[in-house]
């Protein structure tokens, strides 16, 4: 089934009003497709910076269909990393690159993707505190449904968040959703759910993003997420 943007939004509002008690992340919409249509599974590289590598983001990635086969690489600002990444983008091998990194690394990664002629389905800026997270997303048709799904899931888990999604070339007003925190243990959930959402983009999703137990040091600060197809 296709995820209807407005339907999901409506659902989100209703869920919020109803104050649903949550026992799972609710990301599973059996048989649903995250993204406009199911795509063949491509070899996937996950880029993370040092902070993210220690976070639950990768748990979310691993829980996705095909999540066990991904390759994970840490980013930095060295020329070695950048030149290696550029070489990979230009290798001619079809591949997906998803990630959650710091702003400096993201500025480089996204621009190298542009110059290599890669497609970017999702570009997100995120800010997380121990109490809430903010998500500012720019997405393509290929990622339709992912942002509402992220919001729906965070809401279901009781995470405090605000989310804005702008769609390239869309006449619709940007999607805006927010909820106050109802579950103090869910401060890290955004990273796991985001990891799951990005990894599952373009696949038939019948699993769930893992519910994350409260961690002593949640992932906080500013980050950028992306989904790139080369």
């Amino acid at each position: 089934m296709n995820v209807e943007r407005r339907t999901v939004l409506k659902g989100l509002a209703l869920s919020s009003l109803a104050g649903i008690a949550v026992t799972s992340s609710c990301l599973s919409m059996a048989g649903s497709v995250l993204g406009a249509q199911a795509q063949p599974v491509l070899p996937t590289l996950v880029l993370v910076n040092n902070e993210v590598a220690e976070s639950v983001f990768l748990q979310g990635v691993n829980a996705s269909p095909g999540g066990k086969q991904v390759k994970v690489q840490r980013t930095d600002l060295s020329l070695d990393f950048i030149l290696g990444f550029e070489k990979r983008l230009r290798s001619g091998q079809p591949q997906r690159i998803i990630g959650l990194v710091d702003d400096a690394s993201a500025a480089l990664i996204v621009d190298l993707a542009r110059s290599a002629g890669a497609r970017v389905q999702w570009l997100g800026q995120h800010r997380a505190t121990p109490h809430a997270s903010q998500h500012r997303l720019l997405s393509a048709e290929a990622a339709s449904g992912c942002a509402p799904q992220l919001g729906l899931s965070l809401n279901a888990c009781g995470s405090g968040f605000s989310l804005t999604e702008q769609r390239m070339h869309s006449l619709q007003a940007p999607l805006q959703a927010s909820a106050t925190a109802r579950n103090r243990d869910s401060s890290d959930q955004w990273a796991a759910t985001l990891g799951y959402t990005l990894a599952a983009l373009g696949t038939t999703s019948d699993r769930q993003a893992p519910l994350i137990a409260r961690r002593p040091v949640p992932l906080t600060g500013n980050f950028v997420s992306f989904s790139i197809e080369a």
Binding site: A107, R114, R119, Q121, S139, H169
Partner: peptide
């Protein structure tokens, strides 16, 4: 065809701005 980009996922990387204005103000067609 490969050198004419009109799809949204081809144009998103051109639309990443750092200025304090809406992305929409600098979106290419």
């Amino acid at each position: 065809d490969d050198n004419v980009l009109v799809k949204d996922d081809q144009l998103i990387p051109y639309a990443k701005i750092m200025m304090a204005v809406d992305n929409a103000e600098h979106t290419p067609s």
